[in-house]
């Protein structure tokens, strides 16, 4: 049963990534694109957790934690650049 639920979960988050990609391509403002990238990172974390269940290994936990940190820092860096024209002042 977990197998079917996992297939459903992968389909959902895959579709979500597709929708984010559409928003990333369409824009229209730069803030929309930053938000789309941030959401893609969050959906990617969910897919990594599901992969961990699928393969029965806890190794994906470290990957998702690092991915969460990199995603957060990059989003803040993007917005800082838009706001101030510089990342570290």
């Amino acid at each position: 049963m977990i197998g079917y639920a996992l297939a459903f979960g992968f389909a959902c988050f895959g579709l979500a990534l597709g929708l984010n990609l559409w928003r990333l391509a369409k824009g229209p403002t730069i803030a929309d694109r930053i938000l789309a990238l941030d959401t893609m990172v969050i959906n990617g974390i969910a897919i990594l957790m599901l992969l961990g269940i699928h393969f029965g290994t806890a190794t994906y936990f470290e990957a998702s934690l690092l991915f969460a940190m990199v995603g957060f820092i990059s989003t803040v860096a993007f917005t800082k650049f838009v706001l101030r024209g510089d990342i570290i002042e």
Binding site: G9, L15, L19, T39
Partner: peptide, 17 residues
């Protein structure tokens, strides 16, 4: 939990689009 998570994930991204 997986099914609920998947549904909310796709609704959030649908809202973004």
């Amino acid at each position: 939990l997986i099914v609920i998570g998947g549904l909310f994930g796709v609704v959030g991204s649908y809202g973004l689009a």
